[in-house]
Computed example of a mutant assay.
Amino acid sequence: MAMSGGRDDGEPMMEMNTTPLIDVMLVLLIMFIITIPIQTHAVKIDLPVNSDKNTPPPIDPIKNTVSVDPMGTVTWNGTPIDLVTLRLYLDRTRAMSPEPELHVQPDPQARYAIVDNILAIIKRSGVTKMGFVGNEQYRAF
């Protein structure tokens, strides 16, 4: 309904005109939006620098040892690694001539599922010179 000028009976209009209030609120809203500073989110990250000297992985050309401790940490020649890195090291040892020996040494308290997963990775990599080291610790008296 459009703005009315009152009733036909001559009484004054009792409704408040809200149009100026809405105009003032819109002007204040626009001023508030304009005065808000632009938010800039900066996350500082130290990215690794690409160096020309790529350090070769710690692969021994004679023999390498993969061991698993009771906490499930996989180590390659004493250095903790993840399973992707293990596969990468195994692929690199396969490419070496002659292929170095791989000694697998799980701890007696290591979980079977973790050791089984490592043995599956070794089998999929195609390593031919592999042996278990430290089997005497499993000997029953």
Results as ranks from 00 to 15, higher is better:
Asn117Asp: 11
Asn77Pro: 01
Gly126His: 03
Glu99Phe: 00
Ile121Cys: 03
Met96Pro: 01
Pro100Trp: 00
Leu102Phe: 00
Asn50Tyr: 10
Asn54Tyr: 09
Thr40Lys: 13
Ile38Gly: 05
Lys129Ser: 04
Pro108Gly: 05
Ser4Lys: 14
Leu88Trp: 02
Arg139His: 05
Met14Cys: 08
Met31Tyr: 08
Met130Lys: 06
His41Asp: 07
Ser4Tyr: 08
Arg92Pro: 00
Thr65Ala: 04
Leu47Asn: 14
Ile22Val: 15
Pro20Trp: 07
Thr40His: 11
Ile22Arg: 14
Gly134Ile: 00
Asp116His: 07
Val74Trp: 00
Val84Ile: 12
Met3Ile: 07
Arg92Ile: 04
Ile22His: 08
Phe32Met: 11
Pro106Ser: 03
Pro57Ser: 10
Arg87Ala: 08
Glu11Arg: 14
Gln109Pro: 01
Arg124Thr: 14
Lys123Asp: 12
Met71Val: 14
Ile114Leu: 13
Asp82Ile: 06
His41Gln: 09
Ser51Trp: 04
Asp91Leu: 14
Val49Asp: 11
Met16Thr: 15
Ile121Gly: 01
Ile59Met: 03
Gly126Glu: 03
Ser67Arg: 04
Val66Leu: 11
Ala120Arg: 10
Glu99Ala: 08
His41Met: 06
Ala110Trp: 01
Arg94Leu: 10
Ile122Leu: 06
Val115Ile: 15
Gln39Val: 11
Pro108Lys: 10
Gly126Gln: 03
Phe132Leu: 15
Thr19Met: 15
Leu28Glu: 06
Gly78Cys: 04
Met25His: 06
Val115Glu: 05
Gln105Arg: 14
Ala2Pro: 03
Val84Arg: 10
Asn77His: 04
Thr93Cys: 05
Leu88Tyr: 05
Leu26Phe: 06
Ile30Asn: 09
Lys129Asp: 02
Gly10Met: 05
Met3Ala: 08
Val27His: 10
Met71Gln: 15
Asn64Ser: 01
Ile114Tyr: 01
Ile38His: 07
Glu15Met: 14
Val115Cys: 09
His41Lys: 09
Asp82Lys: 06
Val43Ile: 09
Thr79Phe: 11
Pro12Val: 04
Arg124Tyr: 10
Arg94Cys: 04
Val43Arg: 07
Asp107Ala: 12
Trp76Cys: 01
Arg87Pro: 00
Arg111Ser: 12
Ala140His: 09
Leu21Lys: 08
Arg94Lys: 14
Ala95Glu: 15
Asp23Arg: 14
Val43Lys: 08
Arg94Glu: 02
Ile81Cys: 05
Asn77Phe: 01
Glu136Met: 05
Lys63Asp: 05
Ile59Asp: 00
Ala42His: 05
Ala110Gly: 03
Met1His: 11
Gly134Ser: 03
Asp82Gly: 14
Pro20His: 07
Ile114Cys: 03
Thr35Pro: 00
Ile38Trp: 06
Arg139Met: 06
Ser51Arg: 12
Leu83Trp: 04
Asn117Gly: 07
Thr65Gly: 01
Gly6Glu: 08
Asp9Cys: 09
Asn77Gly: 04
Glu136Ala: 09
Arg111Thr: 09
Val127His: 01
Gln137Ala: 14
Ala95Asn: 15
Ser67Ala: 12
Thr73Cys: 02
Glu136Asn: 09
Thr65Arg: 03
Ile36Gly: 02
Phe141Trp: 12
Thr73Trp: 03
Leu90Glu: 00
Pro37Gln: 07
Ile59Thr: 02
